[in-house]
Design a protein around this nucleic acid. Structure first.
Lengths: 255, 255
DNA sequence: CAGTGGTCTAGACCACGTG
DNA sequence: ACGTGGTCTAGACCACTGC
């Protein structure tokens, strides 16, 4: 065990002297986050019980609880009464649909089937590299896929991934994998996606996209530009989705 | 004071017999929500202190705190250390931008100027009536307005409001009001908007919208269909916004 | 039955805003 | 100096899971 988890700043030393003050539970939260980032606890496994963490960090159970509460609110941990607290995973329906915002007009969650059109290693275009925090021209894996809902093509995704983090990703591997893409990233490459940032626009379909999506060139399409992040705000994926919004809509709840 | 706030179910009677069990703090939360719904505490004013609420409901401060925590997480209340807990209001920059998701390409929050094009009382079309929970043909106030960012028209909004809740709303009143529309709803009509549900699509500009937005007919536009709710999940507004997404994008964060 | 998270309490002290 | 919300503790008991 690393030293910081044994000496997480004595309770008596809080709030004095240090330029930056942070409550004990925030410090505990940071330690937990660090363990998650290091992969000390893998997705879908249970972390130590609250009492054990309390004794490890020499704080009360209530303080650990508050740290875990925040991580659970951020969907990094999942509490299960009577069982324990688990690291979030993309291998469950509940997590899968967190990042799929398209719904059918009647509000139903569409059943998606994906067909991979392309997968190759290329040099990152300047804009993609910038968003991924890479140097221009760095190696990336480029993936193009078509999502079908009820057999009709609805989403055309173009995806760029840092080659360094996704060594060995190939068309064959994608085609062989059944399940959500983020599940594959998590299990096969040890890159759990935890957050994403999206920019939505309306654009006109270009020739090639129109053909793949079976719409007329120039038809309005919803463009969803996504950057996904893993622990430590590290960008791991740039995705450009073109969506046909006839019969489907992008759902968003404002609270 | 009403009777339910004096007898919020004795602590000793929890979890037995009743078909529906709910923790004490959830019951307190419901009582607080009810007070908000009744308008007992107005937007921008402070609610009683935690200690006072604890003594009023005969529970500990910690239980009240947990109820308030949830309401604050839902943006219905705002905590201010050293001052008290306040009812959320739309008359503050921080709340205003909660529902404006359009950003300039460089990420800047655009300065919006609105120009009202239309405001009249009409009978609700069937679909609008359905979404507002009204009978088809019920009276609604119809508003059309143009939002300009940096002098260029960017959003064309069509808004439907239940006439019964917005008596006296007129073009003159809209034009005279400076500030966010939801601020006007809150202060002038006692209808605080607290939540909204949006459906996004890409559509082609029709002749009329194209002219107002100064784009070519058929250009792709982002259609944002919004239903807004006040306390008790009561729908109070249907809004259809057509947005030009050249130079601007709709921002969404997935967590 | 044991172990986990979930709720509730009571009390201490800290940080912040205001007078 | 006072009152507010914010943090932390210790301990009790409840609800759920799985053996």
């Amino acid at each position: 065990m690393s030293s910081e988890s044994i000496q997480p700043v004595p309770a008596a030393a809080r709030g004095r002297g240090a330029a930056v003050f942070s409550p004990l539970y925030k410090q505990i939260k940071r330690l937990l986050l660090e363990s998650l980032r290091r992969g000390e606890w893998k997705p879908a496994t249970a972390i130590p019980s609250e009492l054990e963490l309390a004794s490890r960090f020499q704080v009360s159970q209530g303080t650990v609880r508050k740290a875990i509460d925040e991580l659970a609110a951020e969907n990094l941990l999942v509490r299960r009464q009577g069982k324990g607290t688990y690291v979030a995973t993309h291998h469950e329906p509940r997590s899968q649909y967190r990042f799929l915002r398209l719904l059918a007009d009647d509000g139903a969650v569409p059943v998606a089937h994906s067909r991979f059109v392309d997968c190759r290693r290329v040099r990152a275009p300047a804009e993609i590299a910038a968003r991924l925090g890479l140097k221009a021209g760095a190696g990336v894996v480029f993936v193009r896929r078509l999502l079908r809902f009820a057999s009709a093509p609805v989403v055309l995704d173009e995806i760029w991934l840092p080659a360094r983090m996704f060594r060995g990703l190939s068309y064959e591997r994608l085609a062989a994998y059944t399940g959500p893409l983020y599940g594959l990233f998590e299990s096969e490459f040890g890159v759990p996606m935890i957050r994403a940032d999206e920019r939505l626009r309306a654009v006109a379909a270009d020739e090639r996209s129109a053909e793949l999506l079976q719409v007329q060139a120039g038809s309005p399409l919803l463009l969803v530009e996504r950057v996904s992040y893993t622990y430590g705000d590290r960008p791991v994926e740039v995705r450009r989705g073109l969506c046909v919004t006839r019969g489907y809509y992008y759902h968003n709840m404002l609270t």
